[in-house]
Design a protein around this nucleic acid. Structure first.
Lengths: 251, 251
DNA sequence: ATACATTTTAATGTCTGACATTTAATCTGG
DNA sequence: CCAGATTAAATGTCAGACATTAAAATGTAT
């Protein structure tokens, strides 16, 4: 592991890269302890604060964890799916909000991915997954539910569908897509009638999952996608109209 | 933005979280300059090194960039899909290697996601995407190609297929799945005969994409998945046999 | 007045050395 | 043999200094 002190790149970034590469290459294995900060500083011929900045970079990516005390130090972290979820969701959310990704594009991606799970979920879902879906459907029918709570329940429902596929990699990939859309979905005000329609489609999906009918799940997801986009469009239209009225009033 | 100095959590982690939350909430917008390190240190009532560790954490997630000089400082970064790709691939690769995700599970996820793109790609692919696919097929037929180069070309081919769907979110999500599998794929030694079979299937896919025949793409991807898994199994079997022989020799 | 060279300045990058805090291992007395 | 005190080693934090960078301000000559 070496760095170039003459490079224009930050030393801490170079050190972080060197250690990261060693982890990816398998030279440092899970739970292995890195040398102490002082030893690393000595090795790379830099000061301790510089080493610490490098370690914090790695910690931000969940590649290492640190422990204080006598037998403490920095350890290579076993990257867990649960840890990766959070980062994936954060990144996806920011990508959507910063890159003016249209609702349609995000929606299309989400349902395309979800439909990819449909046949697997039909084959493998357990009673647990089904119970979660039914419970969320029931919650979604409760009057007095806020839009945010309705959306959160929607996310849980869809994650149960995805988790039913029994493939951790798929669940991980989809967590980003589904949850990242939540802020966009929260912009939609769900009327009693639209909630009723969504709950009906959710019920169809749950029934199809119970019957292990992949084609039916797929078809219903297509319907749900179309309806979601329709709702979003009406929101956009209403907002534009409101803005126009306001404009008219000021003029 | 406040932190709790009595918490057991690192101050730098708390500060990073506070700033990250502000970015996510939109309180800090793209290209906006953060206060200088000295000002942040003053605001949070900590020392400059502590602030710097926090900023390095954010930089590791591409949430900010720093610039030196008179008008320098830390700026909120516009998170680009390209920047996110790299992190996504690193994370996915480590998840697969550290969590003993079986080849079958990863393979299943990859092809499920890819098949989700098939109908969109059939509808939207441009001549460019098609040209890339044809070029990679040609490369894959060249004799003397290393296994690594063959795999790299395979990745490029599949990414062209995915990019053909014309949905950035899908491309982003899939980049992780496809590229993360490359290390696993590199373990497979491709015989002349297996390469021939793969190239034939790739050609079928390219033909179907050209004809905008979604069903045909889907069907061929199913075949390719089955063949890939078959190849992987034979590799595993061969390796187990070799290990058994070695065991026998030592005994 | 303008173009170019120089100086200033404000910021990040880095270093040194110190102290605080945490935690496990070790020592010590009952 | 065990419980408490001590020690040691590591990370966490701080203070202050200097190095480096790059833009802006200033000065100067044409």
């Amino acid at each position: 592991m070496k760095i170039d002190p003459d490079s224009t790149v930050d030393l801490s970034a170079q050190i972080a890269k060197a250690i990261r590469d060693a982890i990816i290459a398998g030279d440092l294995i899970v739970d292995q302890r890195l040398p102490s900060e002082a030893e690393l500083a000595d090795h790379f011929d830099v000061s301790r604060p510089t080493v610490r900045e490098a370690l914090k970079r790695l910690a931000a990516q969940s590649l290492i964890r640190t422990q204080r005390g006598a037998t403490g130090g920095a350890f290579v972290n076993r990257l867990r799916f649960e840890d990766a979820y959070a980062q994936q969701v954060t990144t996806s959310t920011l990508l959507l909000s910063m890159n003016a990704v249209s609702f349609d594009v995000a929606c299309e991606a989400r349902y395309a991915l979800e439909r990819a799970c449909a046949p697997l979920s039909a084959a493998r879902r357990t009673p647990d997954h089904l119970a979660t879906m039914r419970a969320e459907i029931h919650r979604q029918g409760q009057p007095g539910l806020t839009d945010e709570a309705f959306c959160a329940s929607d996310v849980t429902f869809h994650r149960a569908l995805v988790d039913g596929a029994g493939n951790k990699v798929l669940s991980y990939q989809l967590a980003g897509a589904v949850e990242a859309m939540q802020p966009l979905m929260n912009m939609i005000t769900f009327t009693a009638r639209s909630r009723e329609a969504i709950v009906a489609l959710h019920t169809d999906i749950a029934d199809a999952v119970e019957a292990r009918d992949a084609a039916k799940i797929d078809a219903t997801l297509v319907k749900l996608e179309a309806y979601t986009r329709e709702l979003a469009h009406s929101v956009v239209t209403a907002r534009a109209q409101k803005a126009a009225e306001k404009e008219h009033k000021t003029a």
